[in-house]
Write a protein that binds this DNA or RNA. Structure first.
Lengths: 209, 209
DNA sequence: GCAGGATGGTACCGGTCGGTATCGCTATCT
DNA sequence: AGATAGCGATACCGACCGGTACCATCCTGC
């Protein structure tokens, strides 16, 4: 149970410039991601941001507020990716659907920590924690968006296809953490493409075996 | 960040009988499951088991050792379920495959906390923590077992089918926690049966639409 | 019946937790 | 130039963290 020291080389603060509030949040966001919400204390956040605990509490009422902002931030980042996919395949829902899977696979391969929202939900064991609502709402939005995309792509059973893809991606993210890059998550693209095709949605460029 | 009090009604100790070591482990196992590894202190475990911290440290060298034993225990419990499925469908790999999915769905619906091994992997952010090895080995074994089952059932691409099911189930477990019972995890059986069928494995009793 | 080991209780260690009070400094605005 | 507000630092609060020392009791095996 050795607590990891703060002073290790990899723990150099991310942001030493900009307004204190931004620096604090940047560091909080990064530390929450890497060490988990319960694995980081407010003191460590303040120190990483090159400031003091008091300055932190001048901008955030409590650690919980920092957590909520962290969760909303991660949700926003994810929304940006959706917009990006749409921009890359304008007016082409099938392309967007395949693009969504490809993008997810890349993100999963790159980040060993998995989904920050899902991780937070596991750490927030306090019943009725306000963060849980944020997470649930985000995931529901994600599911709905995926369903709409499947509908637009002309899938035979759009709701079922959307949930299948949702589960596959969600599973790949946690599996990436548990079993590593060579585990089942490595097959996310193959398996997703197969499922999409089996629901009657064919991509133009590639055809799954 | 209000720490939940130990004295709440739902926190009555699970086991007050039996040998101290067993009582301690029973309580540790239950508390780890409900509040997460980092959410429970050794003192709380000892208290729940109706004993003292010293007694705990007489049986376990450290909290880490307790964690390792917890992880191994959860792995063993899961192995028992495999044996159960085999016993219920002797010599019938196709039945076992469908039985596996059904069983997984039931477990997911019943337990909102998801997979304890996966949850632990998220909480164990200390790099190279011995528990991570236990988790990885278990998940690898699970994957291999599922692959063998898919082979025996005569699936067209057993490795790919196994990984697809693996990801679906893993995803359903975390989704159950994030979005609740009515989320995508509710469709685990439908979606899994569809995938199994699309790999050329038909069940006798039911035929997915 | 007696010895030895396991048990439970209490107090303690240094350290961290989330959160607060009080400094003196400095940058900005008028 | 003077008022104001944000700032960094330090010390502190009660509580808990993982882990240890010590001691009185109690149950067991011989």
């Amino acid at each position: 149970m050795n607590k990891e020291k703060l002073n290790s080389v990899s723990d150099v603060p991310i942001s030493r410039t900009g307004k204190p509030r931004d620096r604090i949040f940047d560091c909080a966001q990064d530390l929450f991601h890497r060490k988990g919400i319960r694995g980081v204390g407010v003191e460590a956040i303040a120190e990483a941001a090159g400031t003091s605990k008091m300055a932190l509490y001048r901008h955030f009422d409590s650690k919980d507020e920092l957590i909520i902002e962290y969760l909303n931030y991660k949700g926003r980042k994810s929304d940006e990716i959706w917009a990006e996919i749409e921009a890359q395949n304008p007016g082409d829902p099938r392309g967007q659907l395949y693009g969504f899977v490809d993008k997810a696979a890349i993100f999963i391969a790159e980040d060993e920590r998995g989904c920050d929202l899902a991780n937070a939900a596991i750490e927030l064991t306090e019943q009725g924690h306000p963060g849980l609502r944020v997470i649930e709402e985000f995931k529901m939005r994600q599911r709905e968006r995926l369903t709409n995309l499947c509908k637009a792509a002309g899938a035979s059973q759009p709701d079922l296809l959307a949930d299948t893809l949702f589960l596959l991606i969600e599973g790949a993210r946690v599996s990436r953490r548990n079993v590593g890059t060579n585990g089942p998550s490595a097959n996310l693209v193959r398996t997703s493409r197969g499922v999409i095709a089996s629901f009657g949605v064919r991509s133009r460029e590639s055809r799954p075996s």
